[in-house]
Nucleic acid binder design. Structure first.
Length: 428
DNA sequence: TCTGGGGTCCTAGGACCC
DNA sequence: TCTGGGGTCCTAGGACCC
């Protein structure tokens, strides 16, 4: 049995952009961006857009003119579609091995050392993964393979950026001098866990490339930075410090949105907070947790420096932890009323469910009323089933409002092709 | 006019205890 | 003039990820 671990990182290329192209092949080869919520920033860019020099996170209003000049096509984000496509990719990966960690909406880590030989080795297995995902979902992926997760991320970066790898880079297959040569070519900030701040400090210490970091003393790194950096150092040397992780229930659940236009009135804020809370509570029940407290926050527009700023927040503890939307809504609105001040233009509101615990182990308080409990239980199950079947918000509390004039902008969202019967793609 | 949303982990520092 | 030592717990803030 091989004793060296082999991690494979499978990552969809330009995920949101690729999802749009699956259902609209005319977009192939055309410069394309997908915008964040509220049509705020560019969060996904096709290769054509990347080579035009548009950076990740560029505010849309700043690039609108440039986009028109270069024929860039834009879409609002369509999370129903991306979430569903993501599930299909993961289901496809599970046909290769159950030993898998879903790391993000478009990335999964696999342990492949025990199964790679079934496919004729790691690289042929990587190629079959690419081929099968392309055939079953229409999405392009790249695969990085290495003895640690950090190196697998690095290998994936190489597979993406250098066509010589044909979409699959296995670091085991390179000689030691070849690996060092690649490390010399890549900037240290590309390494998983090295963000802009730490990259800057590393530069100041004369560490510019991955190779520089690879050669730095782990003692110095531990002293200058934290245990996280020491771990990165070990991982770069092929000593695994990170294992595949099981899905853990969230420790907090946040739901927040910027408004389509500034909001002043308490009434509108009440609707928004109630709506966000409904989303968060649905996620809470899905992971079978109960919340012990509700945190509510408001924000004014931080980019308008001349306008008065006010960013209050408050935590409302609950007498007993629960997952009931109506009771959580009451707590959230109580919090909102406590922090609301008139005379400000609010840009964003949010709720965070915290002090989460396993519902099955929920402590029963002295004042627990079994009848009320059962009713709430039934009501929430019914609510979730209806909303899952007929679409989010089909049944909601009256506090969420009807017109919702504060709702975010999404001016060019594609149809939810795979999750709504009335938006199925038509074939001509 | 227009600038996203949802997470985790680590550390430092303060409160508090004996 | 001169004011201990050792521990835990909690929180806020900062860093990172996608």
């Amino acid at each position: 049995m091989p004793s060296v671990p082999q991690f494979a990182l499978v990552d969809v290329n330009n995920f949101y952009v690729s999802c749009e192209r699956v259902f609209n092949p005319k977009l192939e080869g055309i410069p394309l961006v997908v915008l964040s919520n509220n049509d705020g920033c560019a969060v996904a860019r096709s290769n054509e857009v990347k080579s035009l020099g548009v950076k990740m996170g560029t505010p849309w209003f700043k690039m609108k003119h440039f986009a028109r000049q270069h024929g860039i096509v834009t879409y609002s984000s369509n999370y129903s579609l991306y979430g569903d496509m993501s599930n299909r990719v993961v289901a496809t990966l599970r046909t290769f091995t159950p030993d898998l960690e879903v790391y993000s909406i478009d990335e999964s880590f696999l342990r492949i050392e025990t199964v790679a030989s079934l496919y004729g080795g790691a690289i042929p297995m990587g190629q079959q993964i690419r081929q099968r995902i392309r055939q079953w979902t229409g999405l392009p992926v790249c695969v990085g393979i290495a003895p640690t997760k950090t190196l697998a991320k690095f290998a994936n970066h190489l597979a993406k950026k250098h066509s010589a790898f044909d979409g699959v880079c296995d670091l085991h297959a390179l000689t030691h001098p070849e690996r060092l040569a690649w490390m010399l070519r890549i900037e240290v900030g590309e390494i998983w866990g090295i963000g802009p701040k730490i990259a800057q400090r590393l530069h100041a210490m004369g560490i510019h490339t991955v190779l520089d970091l690879y050669r730095a003393s782990s003692k110095t790194m531990r002293a200058q930075f934290s245990i996280v950096m020491e771990r990165i150092g070990h991982e770069l040397h092929g000593i695994p410090c990170l294992e595949l992780e099981d899905v853990q229930p969230r420790k907090q659940i946040l739901s927040s949105r910027s408004f389509g236009a500034p909001v002043e009135s308490l009434e509108a804020l009440r609707e928004a907070v109630a709506s966000y809370l409904a989303t968060a509570a649905e996620k809470l029940r899905r992971q079978q947790s109960v919340a012990g407290a509700v945190h509510v926050l408001l924000m004014t527009n931080r980019f308008k420096e001349h306008e008065p700023q006010y960013n209050p927040s408050i935590t409302i503890p609950l007498n007993e932890a629960c997952d009931d939307t109506l009771r959580l809504t009451a707590a959230a609105l109580k919090g909102l009323e406590a922090i609301y001040r008139s005379g400000f233009y609010y840009k964003k509101a949010g709720v965070i469910l915290t002090l989460l615990s396993d519902k099955a182990q929920r402590p029963v308080s002295l004042f627990d009323d079994a009848t009320t409990h059962k009713k709430s239980e039934k009501l929430m199950v019914t609510l979730d089933v209806i909303n899952r079947t007929f679409g989010q918000g089909t049944i909601r509390s009256a506090a969420c409002g009807i017109e919702q004039p504060w709702a975010m902008r999404a001016e060019s969202r594609s149809p939810r092709y795979t999750t709504r019967w009335d938006e199925l793609p038509a074939v001509q």
